[in-house]
Simulated scan of single mutants.
Amino acid sequence: MSSLFECSVLAPSWFCDHRDILIYLAPSLLLALLIRALSARHPFFFLFTLAGTICHELAHFVAGLVTGARPAAFTVIPRRIGQGWELGSVRLTRVRWYNAAPSALAPFAVVVLPFMVAWWRTRSGLHFQWLDVALAFAVAPQFLACWPSTTDWKISLRSWPYLLIAGLAWGAKTGVSSAIGT
């Protein structure tokens, strides 16, 4: 007979299977929200976003190298742009339809880092140590850095042929499926 408070009774099985990782990441996620709120109030708090900014811009840089977009400049020094701030940038000199989306949307890969750290720290069970406080400050900005900026999204639209190809492939699959009767 299962207890009313057993994990599988209260939550989905994927949560129960990975609860140590998710519990480990909860303080970092809350810290990320705090960093975001504080950095919106004063530029001093950009210092706490630096680890995330470096990873975000490195993702663009590496994706640009791999896809042939030729990265030419890399900076993580914040600068004022209109009413807001640009925390970093990578200048790509050869953005084409085939490499725009992979290069611009590369920061999505940054979200893997917190989960890798959490897996490493919870392999032998959930045990918080002083090292985990420092890791929380290093991991928190990654949650903020994994979302592409507005400029990144605009650049990714240069890969519109991907949308056309995906739409044609989906249409062909749907047409074949309906012709077969599935």
Score class of each variant (00 low, 15 high):
174 T>I: 04
3 S>P: 03
40 A>I: 00
99 N>E: 08
24 Y>M: 02
72 A>T: 15
62 V>K: 08
163 L>P: 06
149 S>Q: 07
153 W>K: 05
2 S>G: 06
69 A>I: 08
59 A>W: 00
107 P>T: 08
131 L>Y: 10
149 S>A: 14
79 R>P: 01
111 V>S: 15
6 E>N: 08
11 A>M: 09
114 P>W: 01
108 F>E: 09
19 R>G: 09
109 A>P: 08
112 V>W: 09
92 L>V: 07
31 L>I: 09
180 I>H: 11
23 I>P: 02
145 A>G: 02
166 A>Y: 05
168 L>H: 13
165 I>A: 11
25 L>P: 08
83 Q>W: 11
177 S>D: 14
89 S>G: 14
172 A>H: 07
62 V>F: 09
121 R>Y: 02
53 T>H: 04
102 P>Y: 07
114 P>F: 03
115 F>I: 10
57 E>L: 10
103 S>M: 04
89 S>Y: 15
135 L>K: 03
112 V>C: 03
83 Q>G: 09
57 E>N: 05
2 S>H: 15
63 A>G: 09
176 V>S: 09
168 L>D: 07
46 F>V: 15
134 A>W: 05
22 L>C: 09
61 F>Q: 04
62 V>P: 08
46 F>N: 04
21 I>Q: 10
182 T>P: 07
33 L>W: 11
96 R>C: 11
91 R>H: 08
17 D>K: 15
152 D>G: 04
95 V>A: 06
41 R>P: 04
70 R>S: 11
161 P>R: 04
103 S>D: 04
73 A>R: 15
79 R>C: 01
58 L>F: 06
9 V>H: 07
49 T>L: 05
3 S>V: 13
35 I>R: 01
104 A>R: 10
23 I>C: 10
101 A>S: 14
168 L>R: 13
91 R>C: 01
157 L>K: 14
172 A>Y: 08
87 L>G: 03
116 M>L: 15
59 A>S: 12
100 A>G: 09
108 F>R: 01
123 R>A: 13
62 V>A: 11
37 A>H: 12
176 V>Q: 07
152 D>K: 02
128 F>N: 12
104 A>G: 11
84 G>Q: 08
22 L>F: 11
36 R>H: 15
148 P>G: 06
7 C>Y: 02
55 C>R: 13
72 A>R: 11
100 A>K: 08
160 W>H: 02
68 G>I: 03
92 L>S: 00
24 Y>K: 03
31 L>H: 07
127 H>K: 06
92 L>F: 00
70 R>C: 12
140 A>H: 03
129 Q>C: 14
182 T>R: 11
109 A>M: 14
128 F>W: 12
2 S>E: 15
63 A>D: 05
144 L>I: 12
8 S>V: 12
63 A>M: 08
44 F>E: 05
66 V>Y: 00
94 R>A: 09
161 P>C: 02
84 G>L: 03
138 A>K: 06
33 L>K: 12
72 A>F: 11
132 D>V: 13
156 S>N: 10
21 I>Y: 02
59 A>Y: 00
106 A>R: 04
56 H>E: 00
182 T>Q: 06
155 I>H: 00
147 W>H: 10
52 G>C: 06
131 L>E: 11
161 P>D: 07
